[in-house]
Every structure is written in C-alpha cells, then in structure tokens.
C-alpha cells in the first residue's frame, strides 16, 4: 500500500519560509495570495495485511519520527 503523508507547522508556529514565499508571490503580481504555509510531503510503500493495520503503523511512524508533535500536525492518505 502507498501512504502519502502531509506534515505541516501547527497554527501559531512561525513559518518564515511561508512568509518569504508569500512575499515572492506578491512580487510576481499574485497580490491576492495570503497566509502561505510551507509543509512537507512524504510518500512511502508499506506492506500491511489490511488498511487498518497500515493506518496504525503509519500513525506510529508519524508520532515517533516523521512529525514533531510540539510544532507540527500531520495527516495521511492510504492507496491500495
């Protein structure tokens, strides 16, 4: 199964990268843009007997390593 994981900074955590990207977009004329946040996208292949089992393993991986719960939130999608 293919797991697609999205990690992003929590609300309230400063995102200077997002701010810089936003400024660049404004410079390019996209002035309607606001509140840019830059996150991470991780894809991985997982061998699991069921979708439920894959979900459980993916959640563990996110909690332990792929995201830092102090500053980041995550969500993931599973494709069979």
């Amino acid at each position: 199964m293919r797991v697609k994981i999205f990690v992003r900074l929590k609300e309230g955590v400063l995102d200077p990268q997002g701010k810089a990207v936003e400024r660049s977009l404004h410079t390019l004329g996209y002035e309607e843009v606001g509140d840019v946040r830059v996150g991470k996208y991780i894809e991985l292949e997982i061998a699991a007997p069921s979708r439920q089992a894959a979900e459980k393993r993916a959640r563990e991986m996110c909690d332990k390593l792929l995201a830092n719960p102090v500053i980041e939130d995550y969500r993931f999608e599973i494709q069979e």
């Binding site: 955590v13 400063l14 200077p16 810089a20 830092n68 102090v70």
Partner: peptide
C-alpha cells in the same frame, strides 16, 4: 528537544 529530554522545539531562524 527532539528526544523529549527538554521541552519545546527549535525551528528555522525568523530571518531564514
């Protein structure tokens, strides 16, 4: 901080 031995986290410098 990552190991949970200290509270909080260190993120990208505000100036980038």
């Amino acid at each position: 901080c990552e190991a949970g031995l200290l509270p909080g986290a260190l993120t990208r410098n505000a100036s980038l």
